[in-house]
Design a protein around this nucleic acid. Structure first.
Lengths: 249, 249
DNA sequence: ACAGAACGAAACCGTATTGTTTAGTTGCAA
DNA sequence: TTGCAACTAAACAATACGGTTTCGTTCTGT
């Protein structure tokens, strides 16, 4: 630093003397991507903890040690930030679901009754759908469905619908093997999912703390109901015949 | 109004001359209760249309042609107002449900198969739970469950739980008659409700417009599944035996 | 070495909210 | 008739938000 000291260097020296506060500056390439990671993770955490409206951009920026203009520069606005958070989280949620369904389907060729395989799948669905994060997202999505419908639509299309089709594919497999007898595997899948996680999910979204042990028991009872039907000896033949409008495959 | 004109009368005359703007005054007893009615109804409408956060006390007061201090004087704060709205709406919602369940139960002694009676009950549940108002309330409750848990708890205890117990009572009746065979009528009721309205309710809360005709069809398929079970000829005997852990009554 | 891109800190704008206070106005009961 | 309760309108206080702008600073491409 000879005679050609730049303005920056002069200012830097001034900053070190405490005359001018240091106000950041352009980050290194590595620091930039590490910072982006921090930003999206902090945003995820805050959105899940506080909800959409109650999470201010200021709070996100401060918690991520990032300036507000940086947030706006990268995501446009608050909705853009949340959309990015949602997409990332849906991807992290779909992977274990597909794995669980695939495992249940693969395990069908050798051991385990249909009931046991469905219960194991139900257990996976329960922990996936009723985790604190899933519930928090569900809350945000329903709350924003009026003024911000795209995000709810995205969650339904990319999340719930894929869960249904995955389960329906599993049912198709079981029906082809003759292990199940279903009118409509898609409706059956929707029904199955609601039976398995519906009540627990609903209670959790309403803020009632869930007892996982009781939830599993409830899920098992529901699945036995799904499999065996509820009709007692007296009406079994009549109602069962009426229910089955097409011949069993 | 002779020689003893009061200050009020003087002021009133001044107001009529346009010197001083009229600023209300104590209302008649009838006017007061009519005004309270307006207030709660307007509040209900606005909360349902816009949600909790997006509905300001100012907007409610203005729409009800009422001053803000009157609102605060009667309900304490915004939460008090919403709680009053919720209690009133739950009561209006429980009555037709109990009626539908009673009718289904009463109709059981003479005509109509179990399936037909359940489907009729399901139809009632569908319109009750998936009306625009029910969905809007559900949205608000889930959204406020974090920061305002009492209100969600109230809705669960006074609303959902009573729907479950009512349905469970109906199932008890059918089990006693030997028409149904259920492990646990409460869990069965919860499961039944989720099968019947779960999917449609979920889609509606996510803002997806619902096709009532398709929803009814889905409900009917679910109920046949509930009654007849999903197990095909091959596994029926084995799984059904495993499912029934206590003897049929 | 240097121009410019990319950042941080902070101030700023406009708007909106809840809840309170003040002052004027009216019905009701004693 | 008089005092008080109940009301309205309006302004107020305090706070918060989303989004933009300014300014100073620091890395990157050339």
């Amino acid at each position: 630093m000879g005679l050609t000291a730049t303005k920056a260097k002069i200012a830097s020296k001034a900053a070190k003397r405490g005359v001018i506060k240091s106000r950041g500056g352009r980050p290194t390439r590595d620091a930039a991507i590490e910072r982006d990671q921090r930003l999206i993770e902090v945003a995820t955490r805050l959105f899940l903890e506080r909800g959409f409206d109650a999470t201010s951009i200021d709070a996100v920026a401060e918690a991520a040690r990032v300036s507000k203009p940086t947030v706006y520069g990268q995501y446009g606005d608050k909705r853009g930030l949340f959309t990015a958070v949602l997409r990332r989280e849906i991807a992290r949620w779909l992977a274990p679901l597909a794995a669980a369904a695939a495992e249940a389907q693969a395990g069908g060729s050798c051991d385990g009754s249909v009931e046991e395989r469905l219960i194991e799948l139900g257990r996976q669905l329960l922990v996936l759908n009723c985790s604190a994060d899933s519930i928090a997202f569900s809350r945000i999505l329903t709350a924003q469905a009026i003024n911000f419908p795209e995000v709810a639509r995205l969650a339904v299309d990319e999340g719930w619908s894929k869960a249904v089709s995955t389960t329906a594919g599993f049912f198709d497999h079981l029906v082809d093997k003759g292990a199940l007898d279903l009118e409509d595997t898609t409706i059956a899948a929707e029904t199955f999912l609601n039976m398995v996680v519906g009540h627990t999910h609903r209670m959790a979204t309403f803020g009632i703390p869930i007892d996982m042990k009781a939830a599993v028991t409830r899920m098992e009872v529901s699945i036995r109901l799904f499999l065996a039907g509820a009709v007692g000896p007296r009406d079994r033949l009549r109602d069962a015949a009426k229910a089955r409008r097409r011949p069993a495959r």
